[in-house]
Amino acid sequence: MDTTISLQLPKGWEQASGKNVSFEKGETEKTVTFSIEPPEDLTDKPFVITPTAEVDGKLLQKQVQEIAYEHIGTFYNIQNADLNGLALNLEFPQDLQVGYIDSGFDKVADKLSEVGMDVTKIEDLATEDLSKFDTVVTGIRAYLSREDLVQQNDRLLEYAQNGGHVVVQYHKPGDNWNPENTAPYPLTIGSPSIEWRVTDEASDYTILQPDHPLFNQPNQITEQDWEGWIQERGLYFPMQWNDQYETFLTMTDLDGDQFEGGILLTDYGEGTYLYTNLVWYRQIQNLVPGGYRIFTNLISYDGNEE
């Protein structure tokens, strides 16, 4: 069987020529590679690329996922073969080394790697050499799913104390989180958790320290970066924290409740520790430019450069 594979590109992109592919008897899969070039003015805009196969004069633009189990039989999930992408203006230190303690609940590490960051997933906190990383990030609710993180939390705090930068994403109160000693200084996650969240993705906010590096380096954060958010602003805000932590913004939910703990930062020994319960993973996985830029600033922070 012969077919022509091509890409349907957005207006203004340099079109790639179609490629002829032949399948011999018994062949079911082949890989076709294209090089494409977007327009120079494509910034902070989503785009869609649609792979297309022409067979016997028909254009095919679907992908098929086979789902087969003995107890239910075989089914086929048919979807558009569209590739959704985002072109954005994103600055980050090219030599930044990030270690990511993956929880299995988010895809942030993969998304950061896709934009060119050097991200290593830490498989075993007990044996990993943390000193090679500039920043170590925990995935959402990692203390729930990573027993090695619970057992080796002292190593993570020691890494910060020795000059590293730790960024911890949101947790629920019951996610093996000890309010007294999981973080370097006491930090209590709000309970009941349903009351400690900002569910309006366009909620009002106030930046308390607009000149702080977190909002200026390496990306200059503007009002545009807080627009177009997906689903909510933050979950499980802290309800109490030690005075060692700095606060950086307030957020107001639909019912008027205000929260100041969305980003908490403290010096710890020679390094720094940052806790944030804003839903960066939703923004990054849904290609929200501001989510990328603000989170990149959080993980790129170097307190020694202030």
Rank of each mutant, 00 (worst) to 15 (best):
D2S: 13
T3H: 03
L7M: 06
P10A: 08
G12E: 12
S17K: 15
G18P: 02
K19H: 03
N20S: 15
V21T: 11
E29Y: 07
I36C: 11
E37C: 10
K45M: 09
T50Y: 03
E54S: 13
D56M: 00
G57I: 05
L60R: 06
L60M: 08
V64D: 10
Y76E: 11
Q79F: 09
Q79N: 13
L83N: 01
Q94A: 01
G99C: 05
I101H: 10
D102K: 14
D106V: 02
E114Y: 08
D118H: 02
V119R: 05
K121S: 10
E123W: 00
V136H: 03
T138W: 01
G139V: 14
G139N: 06
R141H: 13
Y143R: 06
E147D: 08
L149Y: 11
A160M: 05
H165M: 03
Q169F: 07
Q169H: 11
P173H: 07
N178Q: 07
P186A: 10
S191M: 05
E195Y: 12
E201S: 13
D211Y: 05
H212T: 03
P213I: 03
F215P: 11
Q220K: 09
D225Y: 08
I230A: 07
G234C: 09
E246S: 13
L254T: 14
E270F: 01
Y275H: 06
Y275C: 05
T276I: 07
W280M: 13
F295C: 04
N304K: 13
